[in-house]
């Protein structure tokens, strides 16, 4: 039994380990180890395409994680006090957002937005003052953030709601019995207790957005995110540079994940 478990762990970690190992390979060829070197990291970090893609990915991940955690938390708090059809409808929306395959979300966002933009662009051009260039709505970083936020909001609602459900109701009741305003109760009682869950939701959302390929592939327009860059370079052939980028990406995800995990655990203990 234990032997079996060890085998599965090896299966899970050897591929990741091999990538990390070969990212420090001094040799030109991707598959022969020829001594230790960090040159591929230097090469990746000085490649302007990689840096551009990284910047886009970080911007998108930060903005969508931020919007998702703010609006998702607001929705989760509101849903606590709502019963009836609105709640049912919202639960349905969250269910649909999570269940529909990412690729379908990508496609739907692409053709939905392009269709809407095609209608809006002439309108904007018509009402725009003469002599100025009217702005043109198109697919890009904005549409990517909007699409990620939609999906991640559902994730944040689920996480924050789980924490709210585990919270002791008596605390908020005590607070309002002591004449705290609803806003005061929220700021001084509810928020501190659900904050770890919100932060964990933010970190998970950030990781998810940063790693997403399939939605970005459809929605990013002419922008390139890091996963899109990696995908197209894999298509051109395996290089040590991809190993270095991959190792860094996994390192960052790992760091964020561990923080999220610690937050969720600490928050869980505190509220008990």
């Amino acid at each position: 039994m234990r032997f079996y478990a060890i085998c599965v762990y090896l299966f899970l970690y050897i591929p990741i380990g091999v990538i990390a190992l070969f990212s420090f390979n001094a040799g030109r060829h991707a598959s022969q180890l020829q001594g230790f070197s960090t040159k591929w990291y230097g090469k990746a970090l000085s490649n302007p395409f990689v840096m551009d893609a990284l910047e886009t990915s970080l911007t998108v991940a930060f903005c969508s994680a931020l919007f998702a955690s703010v609006f998702g938390t607001m929705a989760a708090v509101a849903l606590q006090g709502i019963r009836g059809p609105v709640r049912v409808a919202f639960d349905m929306l969250i269910y649909v957002a999570v269940m529909i395959p990412g690729i379908v979300i990508g496609i739907a966002t692409l053709i939905g937005l392009v269709t809407v933009f095609d209608q809006l662009n002439p309108l904007i051009a018509a009402i725009w003052p003469e002599g100025f260039n009217p702005p043109k709505l198109r697919m890009g970083i904005g549409s990517l953030i909007a699409a990620h936020t939609m999906f991640l909001m559902a994730l944040v609602v689920i996480i924050v709601r789980a924490r709210l459900a585990g919270m002791d109701r008596a605390l908020t009741e005590a607070s309002s019995d002591l004449y705290a305003t609803p806003m005061g109760t929220f700021r001084q009682v509810t928020l501190p207790m659900i904050f770890p869950a919100i932060l964990a939701g933010f970190l998970l959302s950030f990781t998810f957005s940063f790693d997403d390929f399939i939605i970005a592939f459809f929605v990013a327009g002419s922008e390139t995110t890091l996963p899109i860059y990696v995908f197209s370079s894999i298509r051109r052939g395996v290089t040590p540079e991809i190993n270095a980028i991959g190792t860094m990406v996994m390192g960052v995800s790992l760091l964020l994940l561990i923080s999220a995990q610690l937050l969720l655990q600490r928050g869980g203990r505190k509220s008990r």
Binding site: F208, D211, V238, V249, S253
Partner: peptide, 12 residues
């Protein structure tokens, strides 16, 4: 591993 990039893991 599930929360790290599936792209990089498939690349491996």
């Amino acid at each position: 591993p599930f929360w790290t990039s599936i792209l990089i893991r498939s690349y491996a």
